[in-house]
């Protein structure tokens, strides 16, 4: 009868240890797994890209042509700006932050999160806003020394103060765990319609004002409740994240500095916006 008792004791001790030290265990595990996860994620990206290889060259040529055209337009616009409003625009600086690669995604469908390959050592703290070229991705909700967990906009725990860009109606954007978000706390006769862009309202420290959250897909008027709710499709393709930008919060600003100007770039009189 000693075997079952010993097994029970070992199990109980293991469970208690894991429960008590769950955070350190998770942090240590994520730190250890960061490199293999990054490598494996890189290999998976290659596998995903293989079917697209035939079109990559064509896209590359097209993009080079567009880039050259845009660079010429930028040069012309820069001259116009320098002539008219040089002091205001050239004084703007890039928002401080850090670029991070997405090295993992949640295995649990009820929690929409991604894992970043950078953490506290790179200046990322809890509640850091995370964005993409297309818009807002989410917010950092867990951070270790070398990794950070980002809760996406579509997660059930996600709450972002938002507004309708056109009419400036404000509400709260909440995640609904199935790839979409809902903008709630709108008046019954709120001026919002399908196709409207939803942006951050800038309330609170995390998200600056004006960042794109998504687009309205449907509007529901609840006459019995005297309120409206709006379904919003996120602007960012949350299922295909590769690299994101972590905006600095006021707490993280000393650790995050604007990116240095490359030595080969022409020397402007002041720093230019990105």
């Amino acid at each position: 009868m000693r075997q079952p008792v010993r097994t029970s004791v070992i199990l109980a001790a293991s469970l208690v240890a894991l429960l008590v030290f769950s955070q350190p265990v998770r942090s240590a595990t994520l730190t250890i797994l960061r490199l293999p996860l990054s490598i494996l994620n890189g290999a998976l990206r290659v596998v995903r890209l293989l079917p697209q290889l035939p079109t990559v060259l064509d896209s590359h040529e097209q993009l080079r042509a567009e880039l050259l055209q845009n660079q010429m337009e930028i040069a012309q616009l820069r001259e116009q700006v320098r002539a008219e409003r040089e002091a205001q625009l050239l004084g703007a600086v890039s928002p401080p932050g850090v670029m991070a690669a997405v090295i993992g995604r949640s295995m649990l469908p009820t929690q929409q999160t991604v894992l970043l390959g950078k953490g506290r050592d790179h200046g990322i703290v809890r509640d850091t806003a995370v964005i993409d070229a297309a818009g807002v991705v989410g917010r950092v909700t867990g951070v270790s020394a070398t990794t950070a967990v980002v809760t996406l906009l579509t997660d059930a725990d996600s709450r972002v103060a938002a507004m309708v860009e056109r009419s400036r109606e404000t509400g709260l954007l909440v995640g609904r765990a199935r790839g979409v978000c809902e903008l709630i706390y709108l008046e019954l006769d709120a001026d919002v319609q399908e196709g409207d862009r939803i942006i951050t309202a800038g309330l609170g420290e995390a998200f600056p004002k004006g960042l794109l959250l998504g687009t309205v897909t449907s509007v529901v008027r609840h006459e019995a409740l005297g309120a409206s709710s709006v379904w919003v499709k996120p602007a960012v393709r949350l299922g295909r994240l590769e690299e994101v930008w972590c905006l600095a919060t006021k707490r993280a600003e000393p650790a995050m500095k604007p990116p240095a100007r490359p030595a080969s770039a022409p020397a402007p009189s002041r720093q230019k916006p990105r």
Partner: peptide, 10 residues
């Protein structure tokens, strides 16, 4: 874990 990275939705 690998499947979770490949699928667009968990």
């Amino acid at each position: 874990w690998v499947l979770a990275q490949l699928m667009p939705s968990p």
